[in-house]
Design a protein around this nucleic acid. Structure first.
Lengths: 269, 269
DNA sequence: GCAAAAGTGTTTTCTTTACACCCATGC
DNA sequence: GCATGGGTGTAAAGAAAACACTTTTGC
């Protein structure tokens, strides 16, 4: 039995609007150059062209306002579905954005999430949503490059300060150049990519970017395109071997030795 | 120049109250048993006895509602100061709690943070705030033990499911037994302790629990009391040696060999 | 045959773990 | 002297990095 204070009225207090934004990544493949070559992978980010002011015509992360019948996570998933058509994905918290003036419409706090999804697993059904290839170069001056499927190129520049090892909040990210991304979403994207890279200590996010069964070279390519660095095959295979098992199937038909297919091995601990 | 939609009124939309809660840990020392023995350390958590309904008389994490002139982080720090007197601490995001019915007063979202603070560095000035020794045993059935300074003992039992390696949100924590902690704060505390333990991959949180200079045994004891496991001295020293440097000073006066004092070495990387 | 990718083995280095041993002090 | 903690060394085991080599395929 819960008792409330006398004369308590929650509406006596000023309240912010609460929104969610979510950075969804996928891996897409180029068409193969020849029967011999593997197709190249690209890291892509799901963005929505804004149809209303403010920032009409610019790009934003899918998101929207929460309502009292759902949790913030549910809002993030619902809004992702409504704005893009992507559904059935688990999501992870990134950070809360609440700087004053971050949204010109007023006092609006955003809970930012991130996730990854297998390309084609769930279709983009909304007109204004589409994938953009991303490339992120981390440094004191970090650079985010966005390329749309019709070839338009955008470059966003950040100043990053603080020691990542200390704690996440110690890292400051300021956007220096940005001609295409609405609100403070450029900064959210930068943090999401940093988080995505750090998340590869374990292979689980990579598994979610691939079909149920995959070759180890595909898995390695996922790592390479996210970390933006080449890896040595033999070492990579040793590292991930505790997390995968052979399906017994084989993928043939290319101009080279057929490869074994693997699936995630969920350790019970 | 920012344009807003016509007839846009932010007050047309239903909005939640947004609060913060923060789990602040410290390390306290027992008086030494003899001139020979080191004093033992205890991990303690800062809690506030509620003076109002709901949950009047029960224990809660320091926190409160945000206002439009500050960010959520600023709210968390301000409320921490107002409710306890603790100030000047950096804080880290833990998670957002927004389950329906989590607060009987209505639709209230809480942004939970955690931090550590050196004992005595900042005084507890508020009457209802005090430190409670905590012991947390992690497992499928996790147990949190709280002991007040006048010896009162409380035991909170959780059911923990899901794989921590997968992603944080995949871990579910349900409170099974709880006779003393208000709201859903027991669950926040459990997550904070898990986070605190994971944070010791790097020594920075441990540094913030100790004075500017310290002995390596003190640093090791901080690790041991947080991780709730004994560590081997030689190995511990090798592990943290890249992060500390000698001050040149020595701590003498005890019934054993005097120990060198160290300070954190901030790597610029 | 050959280019491309699949896959394995080996050596070197570094890190982690476990344990043994000596040192310095106050009573 | 002795109990207590401070401090170092070393060997074994394990993980990470670098490289070399073999296998298998479609054209």
């Amino acid at each position: 039995m819960v008792i409330l204070p006398e004369n308590y009225n929650i509406n006596d207090y000023d309240r912010p609007s609460v929104a969610t934004d979510i950075a969804v990544f996928t891996i897409r493949k180029n068409p193969s150059e020849s029967y011999r070559h593997l197709s190249k992978m690209r890291l892509s980010l799901l963005m929505v062209k804004r149809t209303e002011e403010p920032y009409k015509g610019m790009l934003s992360l899918p998101g929207g306002f929460t309502v009292r019948t759902e949790t913030i996570e549910q809002t993030a998933k619902r809004k992702l579905y409504e704005k893009t058509g992507v559904k059935n994905v688990p999501i992870s918290l990134l950070y809360n954005s609440s700087a004053m003036g971050r949204d010109p419409r007023g006092w609006i706090i955003s809970c930012a999430y991130w996730t990854v999804v297998e390309n084609g697993q769930t279709d983009i059904t909304e007109e204004n949503a589409s994938w953009y290839d991303v490339k992120f170069t981390y440094g004191e001056e970090s650079i985010l490059e966005l390329i749309s499927d019709d070839g338009k190129y955008h470059r966003i520049v950040f100043h990053v300060s603080g020691n990542t090892e200390l704690y996440n909040e110690a890292v400051k990210i300021e956007t220096l150049e940005n001609d295409c991304i609405a609100f403070d979403h450029a900064e959210i994207i930068a943090r999401a990519i940093i988080q995505l890279r750090n998340s590869l200590d374990y292979p689980y996010p990579a598994f979610r970017l691939l079909p149920e069964s995959f070759t180890l070279t595909e898995l390695q390519q996922v790592y390479e395109v996210i970390l933006d660095t080449p890896l040595l095959m033999a070492n990579f295979r040793r590292k991930i071997s505790p997390y995968v098992e052979e399906t017994g199937e084989i993928e043939a038909g290319a101009g080279h030795r057929p490869s074994k297919l693997f699936r995630p091995l969920i350790k019970e601990k």
